[in-house]
Every structure is written in C-alpha cells, then in structure tokens.
Amino acid sequence: MRFLKYFVFIYLLTCSYALYAQGLFRKKDSIVTKSLSESWELDKKDKNGTFRLNSYKPFYVLPAQWTNRINEMPQSIGSEPAFDEPADLHSTEVKFQISFKTKLIQSFLFGKGDIWVGYTQTANWQVYNKQLSRPFRELNYEPELIINYPLDFNFLGFQAKMAGFAFNHQSNGRADPISRSWNRIIFHFAMEHNNFQIYLKPWIRLDRSADDDDNPEIEDYVGRAEATVIYRKNGHSLNLLLRNSLSFKDNHGSLQFNYMYPIRNNLRGHLQVFSGYGENLIDYNHYQTTVGIGISFVEW
C-alpha cells in the first residue's frame, strides 16, 4: 500500500506538470518536431539560427520501472565488488530523462554544415526505497559536440538526410569505486522514408590507460555501434534502439523498445522495455530486463 501511495503521487505530479507544459508548448513554434529536416534544421526553410533551444532525445518520466535483476553489487571487469555487502535496493524505481540541443554555428561548411552542442541526462531514482532514504541509484550525464552536414540522395529506398560525427562524453559523476565514464567519437548517418526514420551510429572509444579506466571492456558490453528505427503514425511512435559489440566471440549488446501514444496534444503515454547490458553506466556489464511506464513530453 505504501508503494502504491508513492506511485500514485508521483504519477499525478508528473501528469500535472505535463498538462502545464502543454500550455507552454502547444503553440505553432512547439519544440516537438517530426521530420529530420525540422529536427536538425537541414533545409533552408527550416533554418532557425543559433542558440535556440531544441529537443534532442526523448524527454520522459517513468514513475515505475521494474527490473528482473537489480544490480546490488556493482563491479567493474577485473575489479573487486564496489561494496562488501549487497545494497538493499528495490526492483522498482523511477526513471527519467531530459535532453536538449542548441546550434552553435550555422552553415559553416560549404554553406551547409552546422555545429550543435547537446546534453542528455538520465536518472534511476530509488524513490520507493524508504530504508535507504530514497537515493538516486544512478545519474548519467552526457554532453556532446555535434558536427552535422545535410544530405539529399536516395539510399536503399530511403532518402539520406544527414551525416556527421560527435565528440561525446558520458559519466556518472561518482567517485571510485563506482565511478564510470568514457569518451567517444560517434559517427552518424540518418535517413527517412514516409513514416520511418533510421539512425546509424558507430563509434570509436578514445584511448585510455588501463590504470585509469573506470569501466574496462565497456565496448564489449554496451557495444561499438547502435541503430535506431523510428515509426510514427497518427501521433503514435514506435522506437527500436539496438546496440551491439560487433564481436563474433562473446557478442553482447542490448535492445530497447519505446512505444509512445497520444494522450492530449503533444503529451504522450510512454512504455519502455529494455533487455541487455548497459541500461545505465553503473550497469554497463550487468544483464537485465526492465519494463517502465510513464509519460513523454517530446521525442526524437
């Protein structure tokens, strides 16, 4: 009953905020966009100048996310467990994500390329865990500098729309022994056709000494590339995110499925299912399956 009370309270709170946010973003200049050109200002008609705040990755709140295997003893590869005893964690927690981007430089490369800066933050919050004083189990911070160039040609029945690369840093801001971080150069290529969008993102992890690696072999678990497939119709959105280590031996990775359905205007219900490694950085080498339900404010 106590769990139910907190769940209902948080769900009503997020819904109330969402309805308030709808009043802010229901005008014509809403930050919610659909096409790749609208989202990344690729065509001349969609250019909006610099330092204008835009949505990036989905912005959502999941008041209930359940996992079949909570990570009570986080441990990096080749290291001892971070704690002497398993933490008394609950298998159900709150998860939320905020994400935005802004353009720093417009039309700098042959009059077409742009430079963006993006920021994404995700949180796993043990809000129902009174015994441990409701701590944030994990916070992940992900700033990145993105160089983007518009494209316009047919590719496998799709219209190629953009390509580029990003300097990406991701960390949890914690001290040893549960510090986790890595730096990458992420290449990207995106295309669309009718209601479909596809993003392909391989990456290279930047060199790091073995003595200063918080999460060794992270590429072998979280992966070396990801593909995102998005299908939208009548306000509904199906998003499939696949990550893979691209290794024939001990192949690892993850799959995340998101279903967003319309509630009112731009407010959507959100169902998220994840299975694999790297649901967050502290769990980079921890396999689990999670199911979360909540609401979304904006999407890709």
Rank of each mutant, 00 (worst) to 15 (best):
Q159M: 07
W125Q: 07
R174M: 02
Q170N: 12
D176R: 12
R184Q: 01
F187K: 03
W125A: 05
R184C: 00
A160H: 07
L156I: 06
I146Y: 15
A163F: 07
G157L: 12
P143K: 09
Q131K: 14
Q131I: 14
W182M: 03
N183I: 01
Q126K: 06
I146L: 15
A166L: 04
Q126M: 11
L156T: 15
K161F: 08
P150Q: 15
N154C: 13
M162C: 05
L145H: 06
S133A: 13
F136V: 05
N148R: 14
P150L: 12
Q126E: 10
K130L: 12
E142H: 13
L139F: 13
F153M: 15
R184L: 00
P177Y: 02
E144Y: 14
S181W: 00
F167R: 01
R180L: 02
L145M: 13
G157Y: 14
F136L: 04
V127I: 14
I146W: 15
R134E: 05
A160I: 04
Q170I: 10
S171A: 07
S133E: 14
E138R: 03
N183H: 02
L132F: 08
R137C: 08
A166V: 02
D176G: 08
F136G: 05
F155D: 06
F155I: 08
W182I: 03
D152Y: 14
P135C: 12
W182L: 04
F136N: 00
F158N: 11
L145S: 09
N148I: 15
A166G: 01
M162T: 02
L132P: 07
E142L: 12
P150D: 09
Y149R: 12
R180E: 00
F167K: 01
Q131F: 10
N124D: 10
L151G: 10
L156V: 08
F187H: 03
Y128S: 11
A166C: 03
P143D: 11
N172L: 00
F153L: 14
N129D: 08
R180G: 01
Y128N: 15
R184Y: 02
Y141M: 12
H169S: 00
N168A: 05
W182C: 04
W182T: 03
N140R: 09
A175V: 10
K161H: 08
R184V: 01
N172E: 05
Y149V: 09
N140Q: 13
I146E: 13
R134C: 10
S179F: 01
L156Q: 08
M162R: 03
N154R: 11
R174S: 07
N148T: 11
F189W: 06
F153I: 10
F158D: 11
R137M: 08
R134I: 09
D152C: 15
N168R: 05
F167T: 01
Q159R: 13
R184T: 00
D152K: 11
I147M: 15
F167L: 02
